[in-house]
Design a protein around this nucleic acid. Structure first.
Lengths: 266, 266
DNA sequence: TCGCTATTGATTGAAAATGATCGATACGCT
DNA sequence: AGCGTATCGATCATTTTCAATCAATAGCGA
């Protein structure tokens, strides 16, 4: 096996799995750990990976953001189930909008192998996830970077979606109630989400049970403008009933037994 | 077997498999490794493949562009020196534009502790780097995601910078010559870079020595529209003189002794 | 046939890559 | 904190690969 070929495989492994171990790779590539260590050292110097004890990890820049990831561990199983249900509503050839949030991010990760799709988003994390999706056309809105949610907001963001029209918008938020609809704590984010919502024929809200019945400061979209809410089975049934009253179609995602949210974030 | 025939088979093998090994091909073609090496040397000089130890690989640029990871290691010390010089040109309170590229990314990393700055960029990596810069306002252009360079391009990107006006633009490219100015292989990228350049009073090009004198397909900005070129001390002096003739201010960054990049590009 | 040239094969010393050993260091566990 | 284990880096030996030079062969025209 050629050295360059070996390194290409290592790079690929790092990109796809995030981490590699020296022993494991040496075994897989049929070489010794010494050689592999040398490869890793060279590749680390080139910035292709970051060396750690016993292996190497993906350099920060592609892949997973830790601070944001802590949050995504909460109700991870539920979020994944919601994302799967939302995924089933996407048809090949569609143009869809994705807002920021851990649940929409989970949806984006499911879209990686999807064929022929156009995704418009203001979330850097969604864009990052779809970097791996060769057949998905990704369009980012412009806008000012809001660090806390890794998303683009502000007038520029709203302006750039004004010209667009998509079949569906998938957005999330911090609270959803029958009375107030979808809400978030930040006026800037709310305004941008509102722009996303108004650019699509169908507005789908992804909100796990921790958000149902919650109300936060700024209304994003009133319930009347929302077509579908996808949540999970631990949401308060009374509130869901009230939401249905307002004309929103409520769909409840089934959480597989193996992915209860009791599990800690990795 | 004719030499032409043999080389055609080699080229085909490289194209289809990405890599060939000397021993393997010699076996397959029924010739000796010496002859095969000679073939590879000639073909490498013609740019049909890139020679490596033990074999050869597909030239990056045809099959797939060099993923930015691969490029980021080349001339790393020089790039850092160029970035430092560019950094000294940025004044607090400025609004600047940053294009995509490993050198502009290095500049962005230096800006992390900079106070009171507005940065407009179409590079996701620059945005990511500035995520850590609490006092830098980051604005992303919109646009279609170009995966190979992790940047936003296309009409939407150009449109979103049209309304902006900054004091300086820092852009990079794949080639810079006195005759052709700044150039890149992709028309889409070139158009977007051009839009960035036209939005600022001062256009600064960051290009390490490997790009000086090179010409690629699409002209981004003619030399006449460029105010300053920052490069490193290994650049061809004759070409730099010719560039100065066109009225471009050429500044040469000093590479610290500890960060030579003697390693050849692979 | 003769002479010329281009291509191929062989040899050799140098360079690179690989593998192994050993002391030093870091990590995990109690 | 202390100890055992795993990992790391450096150095040296071995193998592989490379480039340069020289010899041999085949093709070609006069």
């Amino acid at each position: 096996m050629l050295a360059i070929e070996r390194r290409r495989l290592i790079a690929e492994s790092v990109r796809s799995r995030g981490v590699v171990s020296v022993a494991e790779m040496a075994e897989a590539l049929g070489t010794t750990e010494i050689t592999l260590r040398r490869d890793l050292r060279v590749m680390a110097k080139e910035g292709l990976l970051v060396r750690t004890h016993g292996g190497a990890v993906q350099p920060m820049g592609l892949g997973h953001e830790p601070s944001y990831h802590e949050k995504s561990g909460q109700a991870a199983g539920e979020k994944a189930a919601i994302a799967r249900l939302a995924f089933s509503m996407v048809r090949p050839g569609d143009s869809i909008l994705l807002g920021p949030g851990t649940t929409t991010l989970a949806l984006a990760r499911l879209l990686v192998n999807s064929p022929e799709l156009t995704v418009v988003t203001n979330s850097l994390l969604v864009a990052q996830a779809l970097m791996e999706a060769p057949r998905v056309e990704v369009i980012l809105t412009g806008g000012a970077l809001r660090r806390s949610i890794h998303a683009l907001v502000g007038p520029a963001a709203e302006e750039s979606v004004r010209a667009l029209r998509a079949s569906q918008t998938f957005i999330s938020g911090n609270g959803f109630s029958a009375e107030r609809g979808l809400s978030t704590p930040s006026p800037l984010v709310a305004a941008t989400d509102r722009a996303l919502a108004s650019a699509a024929q169908q507005v789908v809200v992804l909100a796990d049970h921790t958000k149902i019945g919650q109300e936060t400061m700024c209304q994003t979209v009133p319930a009347a403008r929302i077509h579908t809410l996808i949540t999970d089975s631990r949401a308060d049934p009374n509130e869901l009933a009230a939401i249905r009253e307002t004309g929103v179609e409520v769909r409840v995602a089934d959480v597989g037994e193996h992915e209860q949210s009791s599990r800690a974030a990795r």
